[in-house]
């Protein structure tokens, strides 16, 4: 027997949970699904300094927990660690099968699956994952106590997570393709003043080398085109994100980069199907912009549901 809801939100990051808070408060029976635990990318961000209402820094995991608690307080149900094994998002009543055993239905769905860390696609990257290569500093930083590690990237995530990793590592070398950081000025200044952080400007990684575990990182100097191998105990990769739109393939228009086109109310051309957050085509992707998308999507869904009843 299928379980019926008014709204199913796929993805429990800031966009999905903001949508759930607004919907549940409006007495819309809301189910939120997530492959893991709530929080999206926020839950693995060591601290958040620019989310309004938190004059002191807040740990990403703590902010994520609060988002989820608030949604549950108003009656939203959050299903954690579930996998969608079958889906029909096109029909008037949308239907999802979870873990091959549970079927849920709703007339409206908000897809807020966000983005996942981009892989570099280099030799050795997959093989050394978990054996020296990581995409999550909060998860794996402690494995590198006293070690000499590298961080690939130069945006906000790369530089902020480098600062976090200095709590554990003896030395953090940032490998960045440009000759200045692409992060907020305050964060850049903090990193440049940190004695544990070194930067290899205008360098790109080329390969990950070693035996059972990662031992060396091959980099290329983009100015001189010379290549060298650096001894490394670990490499953390923060080179942007890729949208998770597998559920929507063939259903809604995607940009060449794979993001979803929506109108201003987060609607897609499929009636009752909305998207919110980082998977949308947009210029800026922040926690605040994700939360805004989730809010708008919820209000648009509420109007859609009222229209169906009328």
């Amino acid at each position: 027997m299928a379980e019926r809801y008014d709204l199913i939100v796929i993805g429990a990051g800031p966009a999905g949970l903001a949508a759930a808070i607004y919907s549940a408060r409006a007495r819309v029976r809301t189910l939120v699904l997530d492959e893991g635990v709530p929080g999206g990318q926020v839950k693995t961000t060591h601290k958040v300094s620019n989310y309004p209402g938190f004059p002191e820094d807040v740990k990403g995991a703590e902010l994520a927990r609060r988002f989820a608690e608030q949604a549950e307080r108003f009656g939203a149900t959050i299903a954690r660690s579930v996998e969608i094994t079958r889906h029909d998002l096109r029909s008037d009543v949308k239907e999802l099968e979870l873990d091959e055993e549970r079927v849920v239905q709703a007339p409206a769905v908000i897809v807020a699956t966000g983005a996942k860390p981009r892989e570099l696609g280099l030799e050795g990257e997959r093989g050394f994952r978990g054996r020296g290569i990581s995409y999550c500093a909060t998860c794996d930083g402690a494995y590198f106590e006293g070690k000499s590690i590298h961080v690939i990237g130069g945006g906000n995530s790369a530089v902020e997570e480098s600062l976090f990793l200095t709590q554990f590592a003896a030395q953090v070398t940032i490998v960045h393709q440009f000759d200045q950081f692409q992060c907020e000025a305050g964060t850049a200044d903090e990193a440049l003043a940190n004695p544990k952080i070194k930067v290899l400007w205008s360098h790109e990684p080329r390969a990950f080398l070693g035996g059972d575990a990662l031992e060396r990182l091959a980099v290329e100097d983009l100015k001189t085109r010379t290549r060298q191998e650096l001894a490394s105990d670990g490499v953390f990769i923060f080179v942007g994100m890729v949208p998770q739109t597998e559920l929507l393939r063939g259903l809604v228009p995607l940009s060449p980069q794979g993001y979803v086109e929506t109108d201003e109310s987060m609607a897609t051309p499929v009636p009752g199907l909305y998207v919110a957050g980082d998977i949308r085509v947009k210029r800026f992707r922040q926690i605040t912009t994700a939360v805004a998308d989730g809010t708008i999507a919820s209000l648009a869904v509420q109007a859609y549901l009222r229209g169906r009843k009328a």
């Binding site: 893991g36 693995t44 998860c139 794996d140």
Partner: peptide, 14 residues
């Protein structure tokens, strides 16, 4: 598994 590790927490029920 580790503490402060969301993917570990996500894996546990599975």
């Amino acid at each position: 598994f580790s503490t402060e590790c969301p993917p570990c927490e996500a894996l546990a029920p599975k």
